[in-house]
């Protein structure tokens, strides 16, 4: 039998990730963005810009990104735009904290950062495989760091 040369990586590169990596959602530049930030991961050469439109009520009405990175970072950015829309800033930050824990800790507690959208967290769980590959954690979290910077009003985020 031929051993799958990429056996170990199938966990990481799940179908959902390959799909979002190839066909990222919300990969565009919305002209009416109220916040934006650039993120840079010099190690692998990923650069992305995250845009969002924060409504008067504090709800994130639109979120999109530009730039392409590796499959992991592109898929993560794409999934992020899908789960963030409709949330307010504190909900988005809580989700980021939980997601970050999921990417870095084996026994992450989803309630560690207060109430969180568990359905959203479930969708993001496809990226949890990066835990096993420390150099890829940055890829998975770049879009989120950039989103956080955009919310803060910073101009640029770097995962270094």
């Amino acid at each position: 039998m031929v051993q799958d040369p990429f056996g170990d990586l199938r966990e990481l590169y799940q179908e959902v990730i390959l799909d979002h990596g190839k066909h990222p959602r919300n990969h565009r530049h919305p002209p009416d963005a109220s916040h934006e930030a650039r993120g840079d991961n010099p190690l692998c050469g990923d650069r992305i810009t995250v845009y969002m439109r924060m409504g008067a009520s504090g709800i994130i009405e639109d979120v999109a990104f530009e730039g392409r990175g590796c499959a992991i970072s592109t898929a993560s950015a794409s999934l992020m735009t899908e789960v963030i829309k409709g949330k307010n800033e504190s909900e988005a930050r809580a989700l980021f904290e939980c997601f970050h824990d999921m990417c870095t800790k084996d026994d992450a507690d989803p309630h560690a950062h207060g109430p969180v959208d568990e359905d959203a967290l479930d969708r993001l769980a496809v990226l949890a495989g990066v835990r096993e590959f420390p150099v890829r954690v940055k890829c998975a979290t770049l879009a989120w760091h950039t989103l956080a910077a955009a919310m803060t009003g910073g101009l640029k985020a770097s995962t270094e």
Binding site: Y13, C44, G45, D46, I72, F133, R136
Partner: peptide, 30 residues
């Protein structure tokens, strides 16, 4: 085409092939 170097490097590494990926400390050239 269509595959990021970081993904290529990681998959090649699974086959034992050690490559360098990234900007190679030469960003102006990239």
């Amino acid at each position: 085409e269509g595959i990021h170097p970081h993904d290529i490097g990681m998959l090649a590494d699974q086959m034992g092939v050690a490559l360098r990926v990234g900007r190679h400390c030469a960003e102006p050239l990239m």
